[in-house]
Design a protein around this nucleic acid. Structure first.
Length: 473
RNA sequence: GGGCCGCUAGCUCACCAGGCAGAGCACCGCCCUUUUAAGGCGGGGGUAGCAGGUUCGAGUCCUGCGCGGCCUACCA
C-alpha cells in the first residue's frame, strides 16, 4: 500500500470527523437523480464531489451522480457554524448526500443552496487532475474506476455497450428467439480452433477447459427441440492479445432450426441495421475516419472470386498461392497449410479494404468442419464471414446435421493428432445421431461490434477490465 | 515471439548540452459569503519503473530486466 502525504491528511480528517460521532461511511439515502432536479423547489441529491470553490464563509462545489452534474452552494449562515466546520473537512472525491433549495446564481447557473448534508463515503486518495483527467493508458485500464470518474467519453462508451446488448436482446426476443445458457467449463474444447485455458475440478479429479465457443452445446439444444435460441456470453481463447483480441470476449451465438445461412444473412443485416438505427438514428456512421454505409443489400463476394481477383485462379493450387505469398512478401510458418496461407493473403490484402459491410461466402470445406456443404459443390460450404470497417464481425453457416459426415470431418481434422479419441466430441456426435433439424447458425463478436458503434480503435476500450499482466509493486 | 516508443510529485507534463529535480492542478496554513480552470499570500511533497555499468558527477549515456502502448507475428 502506497502511503503519501495527501492520504495522511485525509486519514487525519477522517479521524477528526469520527471524533464528532459522525458516521462517515453512510447508509441508504433516498435521492433524486441530479438530471431530474428542476429549476426550482427542494431536492435531495447524492453524489461525488468533483470540485470545490471555497470563499471563506461560503463555498461552491460540483457534484456528479450517474445521471449528471450540478453545482451546490454551502453557506455558513444557512447550515450553521458547526456544520460549516464539518464541510471544510470534505475533500474532492468524497461522496455526500444533501438537501436544499434550487436557485440561480448571478451567472444563471442552476444551483442547490444546501440546507443540510451528510457524508456518505470519505475518499482517502486524491482524484486525477481536473483539466487533463487521466491519460495514462495503463492506469486507465488497471484502475478503470478512475477512468470512468474522470473521462466522460469513456463512460459514454460503456453506456453504449450496455444499450447495444439491450437492443440485441430486444431484437432477437421480438423474432421469437430465447436466450439460453450453456456450460463454460467443457471436458472437450470444441466449436472453434483456438487453444483453450485449462482448469481442474478437484472432487471429480478431471481437467476441464474454459469454453472456446458454445456451439456444440447450443446444437444439442436444437436436438432437444429448442428451435430458436441464442446465447450472449463469454468465451475464452488462450491466444495472443491485440487491438482485436482479448483472452476473454463476448460472443453472440444464435441458432435457428429449419433455417440456413441465407436466413442468417437476413438476421445479421437486420440486427446490425436495427442497432445502427437505435444508436445513430441512421444507417451510416463513421469508423476511424472511414464512412460506413449499412444500406441493404450488403455486398456478397464468393471466397473463390476474391482470390481470382488478385490472380489466384485456383485457390487449391499451392504453387500459385506460394507465388502470391512471395509477391506480397508475407511471412509463413513451416507447418502452414495452403489454407493458412490463403488466410494470410486475405488478412493482409483483402480484409483492410472491406469497409462497407461485406459477406464473404462459400468457404472451403477443409476450414469449415461444422458447416454443411453447398448443394452444387461439395468442396465448399454454405458459410459466410462478415466484415465491416476492415474487422471480422460475424461468422455463420448452415449447420452440418449429418452425424456420419460430421464424424468423418472430425476424423479428417484430427488425423495427425496422436490422441484424436480425446479430441473428438463423441457426445456431440451421439446427439446428432438422435436427429438435429437443419439449421442456420451465427456467431457475432460483440466486443468488435461495440468497437464499431463507439468508434473505438482497440478492443480494450470496450471491455471494462481488459486482461493485463499483474504489476508487482 | 520480433521491432519501435513510453515510464520524472497524487494527476498532466517540462528539464535531456551529463552539473543543486521544476511548473500547473491537487494538497497543507492564513484571508475571502454568487464562484465555476474563483482569487490573494505563505508552505509541504521526489529512491526520476527496477538492477547494474561508464563518469569526478547520471533522470539524461550504455546493458539487462519489468510494465504499458503501437506495429508485426501467432490465433479463424
Amino acid at each position: 500500500m502506497i502511503e503519501n502525504q495527501m492520504r495522511d491528511f485525509r486519514i487525519k480528517k477522517l479521524e477528526e470527523l469520527k471524533n464528532l460521532k459522525l458516521e462517515i461511511y453512510g447508509r441508504r439515502f433516498l435521492k433524486t437523480n441530479i438530471s431530474e432536479v428542476k429549476e426550482e423547489g427542494n431536492f435531495k441529491i447524492a453524489g461525488r464531489i468533483m470540485s470545490i470553490r471555497a470563499h471563506g464563509n461560503a463555498s461552491f462545489a460540483d457534484i456528479v451522480d450517474s445521471t449528471g452534474k450540478i453545482q451546490v452552494y454551502f453557506r455558513k449562515d444557512i447550515i450553521g457554524k458547526e456544520n460549516y466546520e464539518i464541510f471544510k473537512k470534505i475533500d474532492i472525491g468524497d461522496i455526500i448526500g444533501l438537501e436544499g433549495e434550487v436557485f440561480k446564481t448571478k451567472t444563471g447557473e442552476k444551483t442547490i443552496l444546501v440546507k443540510n448534508f451528510t457524508i456518505l463515503s470519505k475518499s482517502l486518495r486524491p482524484l486525477p487532475e481536473k483539466w487533463h483527467g487521466l491519460r495514462d493508458v495503463e492506469i486507465r485500464f488497471r484502475k478503470r474506476y478512475l477512468d470512468l470518474i474522470m473521462n466522460e467519453s469513456v463512460k459514454d462508451i460503456f453506456k453504449k455497450r450496455v444499450e447495444i446488448l439491450r437492443y440485441i436482446r430486444e431484437f432477437l426476443n421480438s423474432k421469437g428467439f430465447v436466450e439460453v445458457e450453456t456450460p463454460m467449463m467443457h471436458p472437450i474444447p470444441g466449436g472453434a480452433e483456438a487453444r483453450p485455458f485449462i482448469t481442474y475440478h478437484n472432487s471429480l479429479d478431471i481437467e476441464l477447459y474454459l469454453r472456446i465457443a458454445p456451439e456444440l452445446y447450443l446444437k444439442k439444444l436444437l436436438v432437444g427441440n429448442f428451435e430458436k435460441i441464442y446465447e450472449i456470453n463469454r468465451s475464452f481463447r488462450n491466444e495472443g492479445i491485440s487491438t482485436l483480441h482479448n483472452p476473454e470476449f463476448t460472443m453472440l451465438e444464435l441458432y435457428s432450426a429449419y433455417g440456413d445461412y441465407e436466413e442468417m444473412i437476413e438476421i445479421t443485416e437486420g440486427l446490425i441495421c436495427f442497432l445502427s438505427d437505435k444508436i445513430f438514428g441512421s444507417n451510416t456512421f463513421e469508423y476511424q475516419g472511414k464512412k460506413i454505409d449499412l444500406t441493404s443489400p450488403w455486398k456478397k463476394i464468393k471466397y473463390t472470386d476474391i482470390f481470382k481477383e488478385i490472380g489466384i485462379s485456383n485457390f487449391r493450387d499451392e504453387k500459385i498461392v506460394d507465388k502470391k505469398i512471395e509477391e506480397y512478401n508475407i511471412e509463413i510458418e513451416n507447418d502452414d497449410t495452403i489454407f493458412d496461407k490463403l488466410e494470410k493473403i486475405f488478412k493482409k490484402k483483402i480484409q483492410p479494404l472491406l469497409i462497407n459491410p461485406t459477406f464473404i461466402v462459400g468457404y472451403p470445406v477443409e476450414i469449415s468442419p461444422l458447416a454443411k456443404i453447398a448443394k452444387d459443390d461439395p468442396t465448399i460450404t454454405e458459410r459466410f464471414e462478415l466484415f465491416i470497417g476492415g474487422i471480422e464481425i460475424a461468422n455463420a453457416y448452415s449447420e452440418l446435421n449429418d452425424p456420419i459426415e460430421q464424424l468423418k470431418r472430425f476424423e479428417e481434422k484430427f488425423k495427425d493428432v496422436d490422441d484424436k479419441k480425446k479430441k473428438i466430441d463423441y457426445d456431440f456426435i451421439e446427439a446428432l445421431e438422435y436427429g438435429m433439424p437443419p439449421a442456420g447458425g451465427l456467431g457475432i463478436g460483440i466486443d468488435r461490434l461495440v468497437m464499431l458503434f463507439t468508434n473505438s480503435c482497440s478492443i480494450r476500450e470496450v471491455i471494462f477490465f481488459p486482461l493485463l499482466k499483474p504489476k508487482n509493486e
